[in-house]
């Protein structure tokens, strides 16, 4: 009986992965609502649980693919692999409305560029000061400081090893959680009052989950403006990370 169940699971790896991730999401949404009163977005908690599962898998098997090395959960490797990940990220561009985006205007573009370049410089500098000397690692960690999507997309494109990718995701995740929790508290310092200020914030803070959760907890009316600019953030980061930023980094560190 148990053997038969295991066989079903192993032969339907990707389908099992959908069920497992669905379970993780529902648990995270409940935790978000009950424990943090919606202040920390459910998706951030879900990713945190994902990283914990990866840690458990790594300790259990000694492998490099987190829980994907546990044969029962090999399907998660397919679901979270480069193919489906890039496919899903590309699809998010569909939600961008160009006419609305034009309203953000010049200030939104400036904020977006700063929001990509500044975190990258900080992340890359921290990586450098901790002894990472190769352009691939420095770029991947720097890109992780932009968002937890830009990090792995950049890392995958320039061929970063898995532990650097995990570090990069962890950086973006910590940043996202800081933005979610910190935004309502720092709202006055940030001058978050008008749609324009929300767009500036969305461009500079970047992570869509961080921005939308942070603004929702500050002032619900500001959410669409911040999220609108932030949706461009991932695309811009994915475009600049493996290209311009990588080349500049490589020319600097040799």
């Amino acid at each position: 009986m148990l053997e038969l169940l295991e066989k079903t699971a192993k032969h339907n790896g990707l389908i099992l992965a959908f069920a497992v991730v669905g379970l993780v999401m529902i648990v995270s949404m409940q935790l978000s609502r009950r424990l943090t009163m919606g202040r920390v977005h459910g998706s951030a908690i879900a990713i945190l649980i994902g990283l914990l599962l990866a840690y458990w898998g790594g300790v259990q098997t000694g492998g490099k693919q987190g829980i994907g090395d546990v044969s029962l959960f090999a399907g998660l490797g397919l679901m979270g692999g480069a193919m489906l990940r890039d496919f899903a990220i590309t699809a998010t561009a569909f939600e961008v409305h160009v006419s609305e985006a034009r309203k953000a205007g010049l200030v939104g573009v400036v904020a977006l560029l700063l929001g990509t370049v500044l975190p990258f410089i900080v992340g890359a500098s921290v990586a450098w000061s901790f002894g990472y000397r190769d352009a691939v690692s420095i770029t991947t960690i720097g890109a992780g400081a932009v968002t937890y999507i830009v990090g792995p997309v950049t890392g995958a494109a320039i061929g970063a090893p898995s532990e650097i990718m995990a570090l990069s995701i962890a950086t973006g995740l910590v940043k996202s959680i800081m933005v979610m929790v910190g935004t309502p508290m720092a709202a006055r310092f940030l001058r978050l009052r008008t749609p324009r200020s929300a767009m500036v914030f969305g461009g500079l803070a970047g992570t869509v989950s961080g921005v939308s959760a942070g603004l929702a907890a500050t002032d619900r009316r500001l959410v669409p403006y911040g999220a609108l600019v932030a949706t461009f953030h991932t695309g811009l980061g994915c475009l600049l990370g493996p290209s311009l930023l990588f080349f500049v980094t490589r020319s600097l560190v040799g």
């Binding site: 994902g50 692999g81 995701i169």
Partner: peptide
């Protein structure tokens, strides 16, 4: 992305 996080080193 959750699945990706779960399969990182």
């Amino acid at each position: 992305v959750v699945a990706m996080a779960a399969t990182q080193n």
